[in-house]
Design a protein around this nucleic acid. Sequence first.
RNA 1: GGACAGAUGGGUGAGUUGGCUGAAACCACAUCCCUGCUAAGGAUGCGUCGGGGUAACCUGACCGAGGGUUCGAAUCCCUCUCUGUCCGCCA
Length: 414
Amino acid sequence: MLDIKLIQNDFETICAKLRKKHVDETLLEALRSLSLELKKARLELEPLQAEQNAKSKLFPLYAKEGKDTTALKEELSLNKQKIAQELEHVRTLEEKLEALAVVIPNTPDECVPEGKDENDNIELKRVLTPPTFSFTPKEHWDIDNKQEWIDFERGVKLSKSRFSVLKNQAAKLERALINYMLDFNTKRGFHEVAVPYIVNRETLMGTGQLPKFEDDLFKIEGEDLFLIPTAEVPVTNLFRDEILTKEELPLKMTAYSACFRKEAGSAGKDTRGMIRQHQFDKVELVCITTPEQSEVIFEEMLNCASDLLTSLGLAHRHLLLCGGDLGFSAAKTVDLEVWFPGQNRYREISSVSNTHDFQARRAKIRFKDEKANRLVHTLNGSSLAVGRTLIAIMENYQQEDGTIAIPEVLKEYM
RNA sequence: GGACAGAUGGGUGAGUUGGCUGAAACCACAUCCCUGCUAAGGAUGCGUCGGGGUAACCUGACCGAGGGUUCGAAUCCCUCUCUGUCCGCCA
């Protein structure tokens, strides 16, 4: 959520920033006028309440002095009605304001480039050079054409399209990858946590998936509960409604979880193979920091994910997302794209974002700083999407005879 | 799933015959003093969010959530949620 005060006091700046994200300005104007209206309404309500409070305290005094309270009582009954009216007005405005405020995305950081979509993202750097092959490299489903590793057909039988089953070496590699990634992150100072895969509405509001993106989530029927789309959701919300001490920051966490996404709006995209599934595994990094240190932590997280790819021998590149491609909660995002020889292109495998205080304001995560309580910064990043790493290994480590080599660092995990 | 009990500030925990209690006390924490040695003593401060004011300060809301009764509710009534204990079930 944006800071309403900033919208009141520095409207033009907020508008200019959100223009990068192509937000409809009439929404912002509505938000501003609503917030001013609410301020005015409160100003009318509060003196009435103050009067009611003060005069109510007269009753015990009157009783002591034996004075008659009939007139006072009548006056306050009347005032009470006025309060009820004003209160109703204030609440209506509050609800409207809240409904509007929670669907407006975060403002992008200054470093975010202008742009419409993924074509306007800026490549920051490339790490490792893609491997060369003495034969034409295949896509992962062709390497494994007998479905010895990934059984797409039976995944569909069990559930529906975009579900798959891992078998044999693939199942084992998946497990090895999860352990390797968690160990790698732990060595970098991230503390491992294991969290629920089913969370409530407040939790999803906190990180910004709700109310706007309910269609992307799997909902538990008959309950106000949802399957998590990423571990970022429960891990960030661990500290919802809490006031942390400055000493315990930064909180650096890593978690493995299964992730569930409806992939609404992705019809026809990546329908083959394991790139885009309704259920996938991911190892996530989440940090909670002071505003002062969040940029440093961002780099640390990005390096962690990038180094992880390097350690697996996977060529990749860093992409600074442009305003139009930036997610709802993010102020700044760098995507990591790994080289897929079979597809002959880079594909996203990690995404590291700084949300500044956007999620913190929604989730009320604060820290004690000297005198005041301030909002923390929250950051998240994948390190890495496990399924995509698995198929990246399949494509990059494929041999001419159809077998697949195992990256050196994973051997002890297999 | 059934029965009973409970839900108060960072923690423990008073307050539940409605009225200067937004909240005792203790612990923790912060600053200062004393003392000097690893422990102790003293003073002050210390809930959250918001509005007004240069400031001192004034003021609104909040005692699980929502609603009700009342001039006035942490305290009474209703609904919901959660936690604990016992029973049932179960990996």
